[in-house]
């Protein structure tokens, strides 16, 4: 399929995404030329379906789904600090633009709708995010571990999970002794 590629300006991209998603999202902005939108967990399926099927966006390429634990971001006042967040990245090969969908979730029993019905490729990504962050994806056909053994305890990519090596050995890259003894961030 030889696709004719139009080039959109960043403002056009944001305008289109906002128009297609309308009231499904709570916030939107531009970040390095990519559209960044925020939505509620129960609207995620609507958002990705609309982005994929609407002829003005056509984000048919599924890039990735993951999560970010923002609980220790920067300092207390940092704008980026928050709780958990699911991140879905979609790409439109015909219109050459990216959309990042951010879904903020609470730290206690985080639950999000599964998008594996919209993008089959999300199935593995959701299994990985489930085992690494403990996020439950409702409607997923089988949330078993992808990488970790079944009896593994803990959610490795949460900031509260510390690398065992950092307890016994100082961080060699630290500038000052306090930082080294603190074991760095890991």
């Amino acid at each position: 399929m030889a696709v004719a590629r139009e080039r959109l300006s960043p403002d056009e991209i944001l305008e289109r995404v906002e128009r297609v998603l309308d009231d499904k999202i709570t916030a939107s902005r531009l970040n390095f030329g990519q559209a960044d939108v925020t939505c509620e967990p129960d609207r995620l399926v609507d958002v990705v379906t609309a982005l994929r099927d609407h002829e003005d966006t056509r984000t048919i390429f599924f890039t990735f789904l993951s999560a970010i634990d923002r609980s220790t971001f920067g300092n207390e006042e940092s704008e980026g600090r928050g709780e958990l967040e699911v991140l879905v990245h979609l790409y439109s090969p015909e219109l050459v633009f990216h959309v990042n969908v951010h879904v903020p979730l609470p730290m206690d029993s985080p639950t999000c709708a599964s998008i594996s019905g919209v993008f089959r490729g999300a199935e593995w990504h959701e299994r990985e995010t489930h085992e690494m962050f403990g996020i439950a994806f409702e409607g997923h056909p089988g949330l078993t571990n992808l990488y970790l053994p079944e009896d593994f305890e803990g959610r490795p990519l949460l900031k509260s999970f510390r690398l065992p090596g950092r307890f016994v050995k100082d961080w060699p890259g630290a500038k000052d002794p306090e930082e080294a003894a603190g074991g760095g961030r890991g």
Binding site: M132, N145, L146, Y147, L148, P156, L157, F161, L163, R166, W171, G173, G184, R185, G186
Partner: peptide, 19 residues
Amino acid sequence: IGYMHRGYEKLVEARDYRQ
């Protein structure tokens, strides 16, 4: 899969960019 999982996404959080 997972027989060779090394957890890079966690490891990088404890290392600086040169590493």
